[in-house]
């Protein structure tokens, strides 16, 4: 910031209580990181429940995992990784002032996120057909274990909460897309793209852990 000597240039995105754009940008980023910390602990409660029940009933988790389709889980992992990549590309495009590429990359990201949700939808409905409902509505009798319902409660809670986050991400990303089409973001100001990107990567990281914990343990 030492080289920003223009005193009176006051860009329109700069709020009055910040000294300069750099302070505003790094504050927004730190705020987002702290929020991501809270997200980790919110998911963490469910991860803790998973670990505790797994320590109690290791055999249940191996048996019940057979009902989950590894291939579709892997496809979804690839889809989310791809969307993470395109978000990172969108930020890079913003930094290089390639306004059109911001929109293109965001568009691909939204499309991939939708693919993820569609696959999730088919996975859920397939289980509902078998009678694998969450909680006390669980009627499936293919697993010889009295606590099979607990495994699927955890499955629905964790992937469900993750799905909610993906959906919120789609919403945020659509808003970014709309604003980037208006040309609001450039190399001087791309804070919303950056911090939404951070959020999206965290959603990706959580799935990176959910995938082996549910799909790869049978």
């Amino acid at each position: 910031m030492a080289n920003k000597t223009s005193t009176h240039a006051h860009p329109k995105h700069l709020y009055h209580h910040f000294i300069d754009s750099e302070q505003q940008f790094s504050a927004a980023k730190m705020g987002m990181w702290i929020f991501l910390g809270t997200e980790i602990l919110m998911f963490g409660g469910l991860f803790a429940a998973y670990i505790i029940y797994r320590a109690w009933y290791p055999e249940l988790f191996t048996m019940a995992s057979h009902e989950l389709n590894t291939i579709w889980g892997a496809v979804n992992t690839v889809v989310l990784i791809g969307s993470s990549l395109t978000v990172a590309m969108a930020i890079k495009s913003a930094q290089l002032n390639q306004k059109r590429n911001i929109a293109i990359n965001l568009g691909i990201t939204i499309a991939l996120a939708c693919v993820f949700m569609v696959i999730k939808y088919f996975e859920y409905t397939h289980k509902f057909h078998l009678g694998i409902y969450p909680g006390e509505f669980y009627t499936f009798d293919g697993i010889e274990h009295p606590k099979a319902n607990i495994f699927f409660s955890l499955y629905y809670l964790m992937t469900g909460l993750h799905g909610i986050h993906v959906t919120i991400g789609i919403g945020l990303m659509s808003w970014l897309l709309w604003r980037s089409l208006k040309g609001d973001y450039d190399s001087e100001y791309y804070t919303p793209v950056e911090i939404t990107g951070l959020y999206w990567h965290l959603v990706d990281i959580i799935w990176i852990f959910l995938f082996p914990l549910f799909y790869l343990i049978d």
């Binding site: 980023k29 702290i34 910390g37 990107g197």
Partner: peptide, 28 residues
């Protein structure tokens, strides 16, 4: 490190991420 840029970012942000995992580990 590379998509979220922590490798280049100010170290406090990395510290936030690590401490979130540390406190999660305490819970577990």
């Amino acid at each position: 490190l590379f998509f979220m840029n922590l490798y280049w970012d100010e170290k406090f942000n990395l510290m936030i991420l690590i401490s979130a995992f540390v406190f999660l580990a305490l819970l577990v």
